[in-house]
Amino acid sequence: MTRLAVPKTYKLFIGGAFPRSESGRTYEVLGANGDFLANAAKASRKDARDAVVAARKAVSGWSGATAYNRGQVLYRVAELLEGRRAQFVDEVQASEGLSRRDAEAQVDEAVDTWVWYAGWADKFVQVAGNANPVAGPYFNLSVPEPTGVVAVVAPQGALSLLGLVAVVAPALVTGNAVVAIADERHPLSAISLTEVLATSDLPAGVVNVLTGSAAGIAPWLASHADVNALDLAGAAELDWVDLQIAAADTLKRVLPPDGRDVATRSLERIGAFTETKTVWHTKSML
């Protein structure tokens, strides 16, 4: 006799909580074979607004945490993700129609990506920062600091878990808070990932995930004055030039789409959402 399964309700992840869309709307998520998988929340512009508020609130705590602490939290995410490996393998397999092996490879790579970025948290400043030998009696140091609130359009239509992790993790390394729009077609692994994040010591609001229409939500984030940067990794199919133009109003840092399903692990990705701060101080014994 087979047991009747208990399906999960997939909601948004905002400020550490799992609200439904304030619009009350959901959309149907189908598996690769056309089966109904779940109803995902369809985030509205107000959900996007709330997510930005939550992210802004989280910035000072997360960026003010020690780099060692951030690294440990990100590593903790990897640990918990690894612990729920089977669930994620099932989820991406059902959603994306992958072979078991490819699904496992994606989840493993997602775990490893967290580990890789976790290790950068207390090293990036050393690699990207500089002691500057200025021609005068000054202590002069340049260090990267987080840009602030980063809005991310996750890669769409493939590798839903890994695609999201590969753009969210690098933004978190230096202390940014993220509002991410998940893969519209395959949003379930993203919401499951937020359950991992919610139990991983990541402070509330540091990552916020919205599911629904990327084309509908992205413009609100692109034009939002309290968003500091825009990662258009998954926006290639959207009117991303318009998003970039909207972002210009408050001179957001914009990373245009590069056509990859999975962002390459790189220091450039960490650095893209940092600001270099240079501090001068006079130096004298007298």
Binding site: D102, Q106, D261, V262
Partner: peptide
Amino acid sequence: TTRVKKGSA
């Protein structure tokens, strides 16, 4: 990261 393959969906 290219060893990870995309699905058919």
